[in-house]
Write a protein that binds this DNA or RNA. Structure first.
Lengths: 111, 111
DNA sequence: TCCCGTTGCTACATTTACTGTAGCGAAACG
DNA sequence: CGTTTCGCTACAGTAAATGTAGCAACGGGA
């Protein structure tokens, strides 16, 4: 393999703190976070309905994630249970290309 | 809070196995996975350069994730180090709206 | 040839994160 | 009342990630 590419060594590139995308990637990269946003996509769910939707994930971690998502402003607890905020719905909207990609990906040969 | 909404009880909704988006959400929801794809966005990195970019994450988990990403067909080991495949670049392309969203999100008041 | 630095990658003990089960107090019904 | 469901939490057990160290292989110098 080739030697170290100098250009990549000096700049740590994307790891600078304070970059919003990093905070977002960190939040979304925790277990169940992406799934929760996904499951709330077309309407609020009670905590227990959400648990059912999330393949009976443990209430401990769901509660933790819901708290994080609430603090992030993506989820709120309403009369109908947990639901996406306007901001949360914007976040979900960014998943649309991902969904289409997933379909293409599944038809791919990945040895 | 309102009682259980019947419509949400019967259908487990999105948790059916075999749905490609679920597999993708599961893969991307593991720690460092999103970050790795992000860091490889504009060129291949050696395993150690990637580690530097990923805030000195442990080589154990990076290796695990790289293996998973290689099996998924998103990453490949080339002459210049680890790089995104054509498919991986397509995946990254779906992050574009996310990046813009992150900027808006950071300017938001989240109490 | 011998050293030296870097590559991808792994071992292993420690720490952290998550799971699974049970159950709490409150509210909405009968 | 009793029942059921709500959001939420405790806690013991297990799985995942961290941090440190180091391996064998390759590529130059000298």
């Amino acid at each position: 393999m080739a030697r170290q590419v100098p250009a990549t060594k000096s700049g740590v590139r994307g790891s600078r703190t304070g970059r919003p995308i990093m905070a977002l990637l960190d939040l979304l990269g925790r277990r169940w976070t992406l799934r929760i946003v996904w499951e709330l996509r077309d309407g609020a769910l009670t905590s227990r309905a959400l648990r059912t939707a999330c393949d009976e994930a443990s209430p401990t971690i769901l509660q933790t994630r819901l708290t994080e998502l609430r603090e992030a402003g993506f989820v709120e607890l309403t009369e109908d249970g947990y639901g996406l905020t306007a901001l949360g719905r914007e976040l979900f909207a960014t998943f649309t290309p991902l969904q289409r990609f997933a379909e293409r990906w599944s038809k791919q040969d990945r040895s």
